[in-house]
């Protein structure tokens, strides 16, 4: 303490300025972020043969980002995040069949439907909120949705999947093509816009209160944070995001199968997020990239047993310490950054 004593009586104005600068710092763009998005944009032009894979990555990235909002910021664990993804996928598919083939409407409706489900189920996570009950409740909701999709075959096509999804050109101009060119551009733009919004949200006072809830919800309540309402809000927002991700999958593949609500979706997205690291928004995106590349590479060797490798990665990741992974990525990103 002695070494810093002389700084303690610095003039008030300077402390005020420093405080303001510190609060502003979280919003400033880092060069690595710009590089990340420039790289994503460049991939569109430079990797035309990989557009289908890149689209999958963008969608999975958005899905994982939505999980990061609740897990990484509010500390709410979920084993059933796939419910929102699946609901969004089905709503987008049904919209195109029964209502309109215009893609943005489908995207919007999917987001609204998933958000409603999120808002309705979020209160279930508040009473006696231990991790275990949250895991079970979210899992239960996802299983319910799976059963519903399975049983309501007249609506969803059941195990055969939803056939006949047709999507109009985006804005009436850009037709979805077989090479996935339009699909990738579309997914990337949606991802980027939603990312910008999420970035704004997590660096706002609201976002800070979420981090406080994650850190210590008892104390958060004691400084006046309405913990329950904030959790419902972010859970709803994450559900909207996941629903939109599901809708993107439907619209770019023009098909919905029961697989979109299967348990492994929820488990995979957890792995993706953990691979990239939780709580800094890029984790989902980085994780999706790594996950899909791994999947691509490993299933080229043993297509049927890809699941084994996912399992092994999870086990090893946990045993060596999950928190070391984001630290690794972040160190790479922060190198050369301001104030590090």
């Amino acid at each position: 303490m002695t070494a810093t004593d002389d700084r303690a009586d610095a003039p008030a104005a300077s402390i005020e300025d420093r405080a303001l600068a510190l609060l502003a710092r979280t919003r400033r763009w880092h060069w690595a972020e710009a590089a990340f998005w420039l790289g994503a944009a460049a991939s569109f032009a430079l990797l035309p043969d990989s557009h289908l894979l890149l689209t999958e990555i963008a969608i999975l990235g958005l899905f994982a980002l939505s999980l990061d909002l609740i897990l990484g910021y509010a500390g709410v664990v979920s084993l059933g995040h796939g419910a929102f993804f699946g609901l969004g996928a089905y709503v987008a598919g049904l919209t195109s069949i029964h209502l309109t083939a215009e893609p943005l409407t489908g995207l919007l409706l999917a987001g609204v439907a998933a958000g409603l489900l999120g808002a309705l189920t979020a209160p279930l996570l508040l009473r006696r909120a231990t991790d275990l009950t949250r895991l079970m409740v979210t899992l239960g909701v996802a299983m319910l949705l799976y059963e519903a999709a399975n049983r309501m075959a007249w609506l969803t096509g059941g195990a055969d999947g939803l056939q006949g999804v047709m999507i109009d050109p985006i804005l009436g101009r850009f037709e979805f093509d077989l090479m996935g060119r339009t699909g990738y551009a579309y997914s990337l733009v949606v991802l980027f816009v939603l990312f910008l919004f999420a970035r704004r949200v997590v660096t706002s006072p609201f976002g800070m209160s979420l981090r406080a809830i994650r850190g210590n919800s008892l104390r958060a309540a004691t400084v006046g944070v309405p913990v329950g309402r904030r959790i419902i809000a972010i859970y709803t927002m994450a559900a909207v995001y996941a629903g939109i991700a599901g809708a993107l999958l439907t619209q770019t593949t023009m098909f919905v199968s029961l697989d979109v609500v299967a348990f492994h979706r929820s488990a995979d997205v957890l792995l993706v997020l953990v691979l990239g690291g939780i709580g800094y928004l890029y984790g989902g995106l980085v994780g999706a990239l790594v996950f899909k590349l791994l999947q691509d590479g490993l299933s080229a060797i043993t297509p049927q047993y890809w699941q084994f490798w996912i399992g092994l990665i999870l086990v090893v990741l946990v045993l060596i310490g999950r928190d070391r992974v984001p630290a690794l990525w972040r160190r790479a990103v922060r190198r050369g950054g301001a104030g590090a």
Partner: peptide, 14 residues
Amino acid sequence: ERMRGGGDFWRGLG
């Protein structure tokens, strides 16, 4: 939070 601004998800504290 005391100023009832904790729910603001848009304007940063900076």
